[in-house]
Amino acid sequence: MPITLPSSLPAFDVLAREGVSVMSHSRAARQDIRPLKIALLNLMPKKIQTENQFARLIGATPLQIDLRLIRMSAHRTKNTAAEHMAAFYRPFRQARKEKFDGLIITGAPIEHLPFKDVTYWDELCEVFEWTQTHVHSTFGVCWGGMAMIHHFHGVQKHLLEKKAFGCFRHQNLAPASPFLRGFSDDVLIPVSRWTEMKQDEIDAAPGLVTLLGSDEVGPCLVEDATHRALYIFNHLEYDSTTLKDEFDRDTAAGSPIDVPVNYYPDDDPSQMPTNRWRSHAHLLYGNWINEIYQSTPYDLDRIGTEVRD
């Protein structure tokens, strides 16, 4: 089954060319089924790139997905055309009356700031609380995951002395988890961050279970069943060249940056990188969508009012 997108959204043509099944809203309205309603709260500056990355993953399942795009109400992006934002995004204050089967909260390039210094922190905390009554399952990604685990559990993020940058091996710590169904014993995952969460602090917080972790870059994927949430601090959604684009950008600007670890063949930036994480990215988001499908109420109005089995 397809993912439902506005036919004028750039991701519609991008995914169609890649062979992902996409459907316009007008065509979807003629089908007598209830699609899963998934929202993307996009905090990244490059909105279109991020839309493509997540739509590609959640649109690859056998289920019909209705993807809605949300932004923070007062924050204005400087990197995406205002026309695009006006056409495809709604501010949270307009979307908050609705209920969703799933919500993805992306990362944001504001790691260096204390959470309370983020201009939209108060509204984001409202979003976190809103998920408990209006969203069946939430997926916090990178800074979004760090912010959410901090809000609900007080777990701190810590600045690194050196940026974690490259592709790192992660161990499958919970092979029986339905979110890791089909996963290998170890997984290569792209990482690009200046902060980390510490495993001992996560272990000290009741109800948190680490599903993926690395000896080199720490915990990666954490389940928070109490709040119906997953937190991932790294980037399985990245395109093949996302780390390359970041490396090339900083190199051209004369900013100090190391060659991303274990990313280019022979660690040679003159060669094109090889994508070795795509299959696990599809597995993770497909498993998440499947778990939502298995447990979400058929009646959207009942989301947030039922106790899960």
Score class of each variant (00 low, 15 high):
Ala86Leu: 15
Ala86Arg: 13
Ala87Gln: 14
Ala87Asn: 14
Phe88Ala: 10
Phe88Gln: 06
Tyr89Val: 14
Tyr89Ile: 15
Pro91Lys: 09
Phe92Glu: 09
Arg93Ala: 14
Lys97Trp: 15
Glu98Phe: 14
Lys99Ile: 15
Lys99Val: 15
Phe100Pro: 03
Asp101Arg: 05
Asp101Leu: 10
Gly102Tyr: 10
Leu103Asn: 07
Ile104Gly: 05
Ile105Val: 15
Thr106Tyr: 12
Gly107Ser: 13
Gly107Ala: 13
Ala108Asn: 10
Ile110Pro: 02
Ile110Asn: 07
Glu111Pro: 08
His112Val: 15
Pro114Ile: 11
Asp117Cys: 10
Thr119Glu: 14
Trp121Ile: 12
Glu123Ser: 09
Glu123Arg: 09
Leu124Thr: 05
Leu124Pro: 05
Cys125Pro: 00
Glu126Leu: 10
Val127Ser: 02
Phe128Asp: 04
Phe128His: 03
Glu129Tyr: 08
Glu129Leu: 12
Trp130Phe: 11
Trp130Tyr: 09
Gln132Glu: 11
Gln132Ala: 08
Gln132Thr: 09
Gln132Asp: 06
His134Ile: 13
Val135Ala: 02
Val135Glu: 04
Val135Gln: 01
Val135Thr: 05
His136Val: 12
Ser137Arg: 06
Phe139Tyr: 06
Phe139Glu: 02
Gly140Asn: 09
Gly140Thr: 09
Val141Tyr: 01
Trp143Ala: 07
Gly144Trp: 12
Gly144Glu: 07
Met146Thr: 04
Ala147Arg: 04
Phe152Met: 06
Phe152Asp: 02
His153Tyr: 11
Gly154Arg: 02
His158Ala: 06
His158Pro: 04
His158Asn: 06
His158Arg: 07
Leu159Glu: 05
Leu160Lys: 01
Leu160Cys: 07
Glu161Met: 12
Glu161Asn: 10
Lys162Val: 12
Lys162Ala: 11
Lys163His: 06
Lys163Met: 11
Lys163Ile: 08
Phe165Gln: 01
Phe165Ile: 03
Phe165Tyr: 05
Gly166His: 02
Gly166Val: 02
Gly166Ser: 05
Gly166Asn: 02
Cys167Thr: 04
Cys167Gln: 03
Cys167Asn: 02
Cys167Tyr: 01
Cys167Ser: 02
Arg169Tyr: 07
Arg169Met: 09
His170Thr: 06
His170Met: 10
His170Glu: 05
Gln171Ser: 12
Gln171Ile: 14
Asn172Pro: 07
Asn172Ser: 07
Asn172Cys: 09
Leu173Glu: 02
Leu173Ile: 08
Pro175Lys: 03
Pro175Phe: 07
Ser177Asp: 03
Pro178Trp: 00
Pro178Tyr: 00
Phe179Trp: 05
Phe179Met: 06
Leu180Trp: 00
Leu180Phe: 00
Leu180Gln: 00
Gly182Leu: 06
Phe183Ser: 00
Ser184Asn: 03
Ser184Val: 01
Ser184Tyr: 01
Ser184Cys: 04
Ser184Thr: 00
Asp185Trp: 03
Asp185Met: 05
Asp186Val: 12
Asp186Thr: 13
Val187Asn: 00
Val187Lys: 00
